[in-house]
Design a protein around this nucleic acid. Sequence first.
DNA 1: CTGAAAGCGCTTACAG
DNA 2: CTGAAAGCGCTTACAG
Lengths: 401, 401
Amino acid sequence: MVRRIINEACGERERAERRAAIRSGRIGASLTTGLHARAITASRRSPEPPCPCARSRSRIGDRRMRPERGKDGTMGSRVTAQQVADLAGVSRSAVSRCFGDGQVSEETRRRIMAASQTLGYRPNAIARSLTGQNTGLIALLLAEIDNPYIDLVLKKLLLAIAEADKRALVIPETRQHDLTGSTMHALDYQADAIVVLGGTVSDHVVEQLRGLDTPVFQFGRQGGGLGGVACDNEMGGRMGGRFLVQSGRRRIAYITKAAATDANRRRRAGFAAALEAAGLPVLEGVAQDNGFEGGYQAATRLFSAPEPPDALFCFNDIMALGALQAAATFRLRVPEDVAILGFDDIPMAGWPAFGLSTVRPNLDLQIGKLMAMLLEIYEGAPARRTVDLVQPDLVVRRTAA
Amino acid sequence: MVRRIINEACGERERAERRAAIRSGRIGASLTTGLHARAITASRRSPEPPCPCARSRSRIGDRRMRPERGKDGTMGSRVTAQQVADLAGVSRSAVSRCFGDGQVSEETRRRIMAASQTLGYRPNAIARSLTGQNTGLIALLLAEIDNPYIDLVLKKLLLAIAEADKRALVIPETRQHDLTGSTMHALDYQADAIVVLGGTVSDHVVEQLRGLDTPVFQFGRQGGGLGGVACDNEMGGRMGGRFLVQSGRRRIAYITKAAATDANRRRRAGFAAALEAAGLPVLEGVAQDNGFEGGYQAATRLFSAPEPPDALFCFNDIMALGALQAAATFRLRVPEDVAILGFDDIPMAGWPAFGLSTVRPNLDLQIGKLMAMLLEIYEGAPARRTVDLVQPDLVVRRTAA
DNA sequence: CTGAAAGCGCTTACAG
DNA sequence: CTGAAAGCGCTTACAG
């Protein structure tokens, strides 16, 4: 055992005296006394001879080279709970309880709120995170950064997270099979959960993420033992295939990039099943990429064949738009000569210029389910391990009817 | 003065003894001794009779209901610097220095790195933020959430921020004239800087942000006394106008939504100046919105007039695409009958389907300049107060030549 | 180069 | 309901 002598108690005593004074009405809790309170605090912090902490304080105060108080009287976020406590004549604990979910008397709450108002106090979320139950941060791992569908997902998710009063730490992950150092750093912020957006990330990365002690969810991706939500891609493929078959098409092609992402495999499987049920083969349309050019070129190749297809089902809308352009180049009438069907229902698909028929994932429902899973962990529930599949809708516009 | 007796020193002594043992070679710094070290730590934390902190610890340990050690041997991020220090036989300070920019001897660094490796230690960024110079967080205030150009900006900025080893806290701001509570909360995370993306946010919001003690920058917006970067919109407007004039157009319209955003005002001013220099008037094309439909309808109205324009300069590419569609509806040849010019050069503009001529902001240069400003504040420089204008380029494709 | 101590701004049992 | 104390996981002068 060792005894240590701590000399900050004088400040404590001053504070207690002041509290008594405020309560007895000898001093009012006004801005003026607030300044007074600050003077007391300061004297506590740097007794003569000036103690080391004074040096340290000023350095930190300096670090952003801004005054403690804004020119317009609003305070910067440097006001601390102690300052509020001093001005209100209560303890720091009371202030904490008042801003947290603790019990505070009406009178105390009133004083604290008034003081906070005056000083412009807002609790430091970082300090809160260090000691509290959670950080309020949700890390969004953006795997497919140039997928316009993911753009949509990201925006809706950002809105939903803000709505739930959480914060989004957005991390662009440029590697597919490993985590970048930048991502690792972002993960050091103790996010309450991680959401992997998009289907291109490898199972290995998912495995790495599972090694962390943070719940991980996936959006638009299945497998890897992670919970999450996804569009029922197989169902979507089946819906598309069935629709084309029923509208009398016989030479039906599926256009996609060769790479076997999970979403692609499933859409294709459902599609193939639908054609097979009708005794039809799947014509192959291989694209260089999953973008406009890819769709354009794959369709061009198909249209140049001796027996061109009478229907195209494209892995996504952008490719379908490329295919649409190819059809125009070949002077094919859409949908009379060739039906074109996309997937995703990006905003552009609905533009009158295109009138693209497509399979629309129920994005809002997916986001809703994901948010529910996310919020469950704040209730102390263990992270889900299953992927919730959400059924898409067929949107019939002009390009396939 | 008050004397306080602190009983944690026993743990300290044990630690010191152990350090000596490790150094003298009596114990090796292996995984096994690592577990041993943890046992010591544990005994320090809960001496018999079990002290209160044991309770508190277990609660916090429980809070995520995960074991201290993953099934595959990887550690969760719950390993602390103290554990590494114990295993390496050094002080917590040494570990901190090793992961920070402090001075550490080669041997010490080796031991610490080995121990960290074994335990899977990564410094807790939140704790670091609380005590360190900065948080490494950059708040991105996303004002125009459905502007596809801002999508592009956001992605590039996310990449640049990750590249600079900073983290992006992305905040969707749905209100134009005030900050939402959600945004206020996000700002409580002590971001090192705030970047306002997009031009639609009001000066009042900018004023509120300036009240915080965090440097604020703006992207694609001028005024309000905030530093930042923006496309030289006036110059862009002038380039567009001059180009149309020089290609022989005489009845030139400017299409935009009536609302007077800053970018709109400037583009229009430059454009009008170019036409005026040629003695030409600006034909007005008023749109409902700044999207595809808006462009389509405004163009439709212009084409229906007794003397339709022979050139359209649109506020942005999406509107220009709408106008292009309107031209097709009117069976107008582009560019022979009517030239169409956009602004932004979104990826779609370059698709062969459109071949949209447009004014291209130099996005990479803008991002580069913004990042430079952002990084300056980490050097202790005061936030810049001026907006750097970056000159755009004219991209001539098929719709105006 | 190194360790002990103090501190960052909060929260949370604990004991009134 | 309230305050004093301990603690969250780090960093950083300070004094060797």
